[in-house]
Design a protein around this nucleic acid. Structure first.
Ligand SMILES: [Mn+2]
Ligand SMILES: [Mn+2]
Ligand SMILES: [Zn+2]
Ligand SMILES: [Zn+2]
Lengths: 138, 138
DNA sequence: AGGGTTATTGCAACAAGTTGCACTCATTCA
DNA sequence: TGAATGAGTGCAACTTGTTGCAATAACCCT
């Protein structure tokens, strides 16, 4: 499913700014920040503004086209939703990142849905903690 | 365990500013924001600064004396750790909050520890999503 | 293709939180 | 009790992200 089409089908306008934000997200091979997206947008539309990037990302979050994830580095990072079907463990001490399949969260999601009728939004998490090597010492 | 003593035992200085931050946290009956803590500090030390509040909270987080939780309201909120042994479900649509026992997270924590040797820091979560009433309609 | 409607943008001001630096004062030790 | 020391503070500048508003331009209709 293309993001461009998804926007149009929901009645949102396809502006050149939005198309370039979507392009930057798709071309990124990992997690990309708003500032990095803006650099690419600004290279082609020098008069453009980073608030447009933030607003486009917020819209795409609302439509479940991107995920926003906080890796505790002072700015959050974005992923095209279809590429982000997994989670990360982030060691607060050494910064090591361990990748997890999305299914790791399913038991929790199921419990919340069955016991509390709550549809939890838990996509592309960065769970903070300490890896084996680091808590062996602390 | 008193926060005052915990700081002293680790070699940190007990300044009046820190004592008032700790007092504000303990007197709060729910989740309290940095700004709200600062109001109480400022009432007694008019020359004090909110960056001291943020630095004290960061120190207390590091020592596991407080938890920091993001309820998606534009600012995070704090809890004395001993009072925060639970979690919350937050409906993104109607704002309703459902309280959970901390044990709900144990299966996930155990899996991460056993399968990935990762000590996950998952205390006092605010899990975003949609409650029954709201996703029945959308 | 051209005109009207209004969603979207750029801009500037703002809010939450962080950080470098010089000064101050809590703690230690004589 | 009275220095000496450096952890902690206030302050100001900065970063990330949000928001109100007037101007613009994407889309729909003819
Ligand atoms: Mn990822
Ligand atoms: Mn709570
Ligand atoms: Zn580590
Ligand atoms: Zn709801």
């Amino acid at each position: 499913m293309s993001c461009d089409r998804a926007l149009r089908e929901k009645g949102y306008r396809l502006t050149p700014q939005r198309m370039l934000v979507i392009e930057a997200l798709h071309n990124a091979n990992g997690h990309i920040s708003a500032e990095e997206i803006y650099e690419q947008l600004h290279a082609r539309y020098s008069y453009s503004n980073i608030s447009t990037v933030y607003r486009t990302l917020e819209l795409m979050k609302k439509l479940n086209l991107v995920t926003e994830t906080d890796f505790s580095e002072g700015r959050v990072r974005y992923h095209v939703a279809e590429k982000g079907r997994h989670h990360h463990l982030v060691c607060r001490t050494c910064g090591r990142i361990i990748d997890l399949d999305e299914s790791i969260i399913n038991p929790l999601k199921d419990t919340l849905l069955q016991d509390y009728d709550f549809e939890a939004d838990l996509r592309h998490l960065a769970i903070s903690g300490e890896c084996h090597d680091c808590y062996k010492e602390g």
